[in-house]
């Protein structure tokens, strides 16, 4: 008969994490990747897995304010550090400026890649970088999108960086 799946895990340990400002303790093998722990143990499914190889950027989260691909980081490496996921960007129910810009520019189609883009751009904005369009494009080269052709995403981030967008779409 089946056993509780926790018994299946070799070497699971209790690890302290600070996620979106909350101190939590998770039970996980130290080498399990942060993305799995966030999604499966903490229910923070806004962080997406698209490749598990660091290619697509869908799993991007901030660790101590630095954007990383959480599919590659062992959870033990995040222990004791400040992890921010897409769910942690809103404050008091208000969208983060990058989230608001993505919403305003209708930058989501299927939306699977969007949390990764937003978290990556949030790092840029938090650093106070005011990037022009070319710099924004370069800053996004670690994230893949298959739906949009990136144009609306770039528009949103340029906007969130404090630039207006020169794009005209009739409506």
């Amino acid at each position: 008969m089946a056993q509780d799946h926790r018994e299946q895990r070799n070497g699971a340990e209790r690890l302290p994490l600070r996620v979106n400002g909350d101190d939590v303790e998770v039970e996980a093998a130290p080498m399990s990747v942060l993305a799995d722990v966030l999604r499966d143990e903490l229910g923070l499914t806004g962080t997406k897995l698209g490749c598990r190889a660091g290619d697509c950027g869908s799993c991007t989260v901030l660790v101590d304010g630095v954007a990383i691909t959480s599919c590659l980081m062992p959870v033990a490496q995040a222990a004791g550090r400040d992890v921010t996921t897409i769910e942690g960007l809103e404050t008091d129910g208000e969208l983060h400026p990058v989230q608001q810009a993505f919403s305003d520019h209708n930058a989501s189609q299927c939306g699977y890649c969007i949390p990764g883009f937003i978290v990556a751009a949030a790092e840029t904005v938090a650093n106070g970088e005011v990037l022009d369009r070319e710099q924004v494009v370069q800053s996004l080269s670690g994230n893949l999108c298959r739906c949009t052709g990136y144009e609306s995403i770039v528009d949103a981030i340029v906007d969130a960086c404090g630039h207006g967008t020169d794009r005209e779409v009739a409506s």
Binding site: L44, T45, G46, T47, T85, I86, E87, L89, E90, L95, Q99, Q100, F102, S103, N106, A107, S108, G111, I114, P115, I118
Partner: peptide, 8 residues
């Protein structure tokens, strides 16, 4: 679905 897609 624009807002839920940007909040995760």
């Amino acid at each position: 679905d624009g807002t839920p897609k940007v909040t995760g």
